[in-house]
Design a protein around this nucleic acid. Structure first.
Lengths: 239, 239
DNA sequence: CGCTTAATTGAGAGCCTTCAATCATCGTGG
DNA sequence: CCACGATGATTGAAGGCTCTCAATTAAGCG
């Protein structure tokens, strides 16, 4: 295949991803006027594993994840990171401009994303209530998840946090088919720690404990099999 | 004044509060059709200090705070509370139906609030994009605050959390006029602890430390004077 | 002014962190 | 295909920050 052909193929793939995102995340059909407006508005970004999305920090952004997995990281200081959310393909998230703390979007795997300037996007969909509503509901989901996270960070033990984390991930990216749920975590132990407000060592120790209890099983670095979701729920403090 | 007259007065007050909320929080004019729809939809609640809003946990609710201060509490278990947000007069918030954890709205001071069933409200404003957008922006503000909270809970020391808390409260309810910012906190030390993921004792000790540093000054239980906001910002880890 | 509740202060324990070393995993190159 | 190296993960020991339990003091209300 020629270089040209490769480029064309990538561009086409990008197009189809874009259309899918529009439909899935915002409920916008590809053949509408709004769709073409949004196409012009979007900055496509191809992120490599570990790469930080190069966003200007001057205004808010909305980012649609076409494919891949990402983490939204806040910095308490240079070397203290807190992951405030994970986002996967098909989701859309809001990234704040500079406040007291800086937030960055970082790719866990290679990822294709589309970046929108928030205000302009809002203006665009101003007269399309169904899209606005969809976005509102997404935002609400993110808020509810974030509250749960705050609850865990503030009041739960390391073990409870890890158990909660597993169950939450199982809901979002676990294999629906397999009876004992199989999880392929795209994030490292460090990421898990940064998400749960723990160190890698503590995460590892609690992992070992869950393994010893027979509640989970691990294969390699990233695969986790949930052997007993009931028990995991109890350990998570889900009353 | 007769009992009847008192009731009439209260009802009138409630009306005017409602109109103000409609304008302030949602941008809805009182003389519109939408306003009267919403009036029918709203359940007014007069909450006493410490009272928990009696909400059915079967569906999501939107609550508009007309006056007073409230806390939104999540429960990790019976005796482990985490305040995920404070909300004051003029604000609107979203309360989830039952998930893994239960959330309740509790009044810090006497408060007048209006409760809306979420889905029905969304349906009502479905064709009013400006209202939808306003709500979207409110939701986003709540999300950003919640992320900051998660960041603090996960990665900051008790001292840093308390300093952050003071500054955040100063922004929201501090006296704009006075040069050294005067804060009248409507929440107890326990509430502050429950918000910061700390115990009352730790909150009290860190308060003492800030006092010893000359950064703040306290008068009685609820008044705090910020003597040095710069220093407070540094202690809060605001880079 | 007295009582009730909230806040402060102190001592000891526990959970997680830090620092350090070993082991496993996985991608790479021979 | 396997050995190797680099990175990530696990395990261990010691320390620190916050929690728990307990007693004292202060604040606010009747």
């Amino acid at each position: 295949m020629t270089t040209m052909a490769v480029h064309v193929k990538i561009a086409q793939e990008r197009e189809s991803w874009f259309d899918e995102i529009l439909r899935g995340a915002l409920g916008v059909r590809a053949d509408t006027k709004l769709a073409s407006q949004l196409r012009l508005l979007a900055t496509p970004l191809q992120l490599r594993r570990g790469e930080i999305a190069p966003l200007t920090l001057e205004s808010n952004h909305l980012v649609a994840i076409a494919s891949g997995a990402t983490k939204l990281v806040g910095y308490a200081s240079r070397d203290r990171e807190q992951i405030v959310a994970f986002h996967f393909g098909g989701e859309i998230l809001s990234i704040p401009a500079d406040r007291e703390h800086v937030y960055r979007l970082c790719a866990l795997t290679d990822a294709q994303v589309f970046v929108f300037p928030e205000q302009v996007l809002f203006d665009c969909i101003e007269h399309d209530p169904s899209v606005l509503r969809r976005l509102l509901e997404r935002m609400q989901t993110a808020l509810f998840r974030c509250r749960d996270k705050a609850l865990g960070l503030g009041r739960k033990s390391a073990q409870e946090r890890l158990a909660s984390f597993m169950l939450a991930m199982a809901e979002r990216i676990g294999s629906r088919t397999a009876a004992p749920c199989v999880l392929d975590l795209p994030m490292s132990r460090r990421d898990i720690g940064d998400s749960l407000g723990l160190t890698i060592e503590t995460v590892s120790r609690r992992f070992g404990e869950l393994r010893a209890l027979g509640v989970i099983e691990t294969q390699g670095r990233s695969r986790v099999i949930l052997r007993d979701r009931e028990a995991l729920g109890r350990l998570a403090g889900h009353v």
